[in-house]
Nucleic acid binder design. Structure first.
Lengths: 114, 114
DNA sequence: CAGTATCCCCGTGGATACTG
DNA sequence: CAGTATCCACGGGGATACTG
């Protein structure tokens, strides 16, 4: 799911705003891994086996646009690109931890994984 | 965005599990309104002007399946149906508040609403 | 009132091939 | 290595009409 940007322009609900920016199909996981430290593109790919390169790129670009993630390109051969949380991105840490902890609780309660 | 259920079966990331259950297109807002108290179907519709009846129904059904929301049908004419958070749903409160508060911060920082 | 049933469009995202 | 480009299938979700 990729989420439209104008969602809460009418609902005006901050919860929607927040989910709009971190609710993308792979953003939660990406953000959570970046919480643990800087990652290269290929590293993130390994963390997200179900996410295509295309999708990972798109999600990362959106996170970058939203100012949550900083992208650094090292002018080397072969190229190296690193992703890390911006200061603003790090402000999401408590929220992400909240989601993470609740997710654990949820997992132990619900057994509906495919 | 409607989110697949088998997502974290491979990523095994609790953040994904959590977003899988509350990351649906309208779930955040619905949950947030239900945090404020019981609502009838029609009331929720008014809270979510951009959400079609069909979509609202689908989202509510999923929330119900996931055990976050309780649905009560009153055998009256005309029919009355009320939605409220289950105990499990209420366990999400801190997370929702976290999203809400961060959303405020986000809104004051980003001006990219349509 | 609180939905369900149908039809149908188009955006999301997979697969594949290619490049600086 | 870290992407981009292109093509294409699928299903999410809107609009509309109908019902207990």
């Amino acid at each position: 799911m990729t989420r439209k940007r104008d969602d809460d322009s009418k609902t005006n609900c901050p919860v929607e705003s927040a989910l709009g920016v971190l609710g993308g199909r792979w953003k939660g996981v990406v953000l959570y891994w970046l919480l643990k430290g800087t990652h290269r593109f290929g590293e993130l790919r390994k963390r997200l086996p179900n996410c295509s390169a295309r999708m990972l790129t798109l999600q990362l670009r959106e996170l970058e646009e939203d100012g949550l993630v900083k992208r650094t390109v090292y002018p080397e051969v072969p190229p190296r690109v690193e992703y890390e949380l911006s200061a603003f991105g790090r402000s999401l840490e408590p929220v992400l931890r909240g989601l993470h902890d609740w997710g654990d609780k949820y997992k132990s309660r619900l057994r509906r994984a495919a």
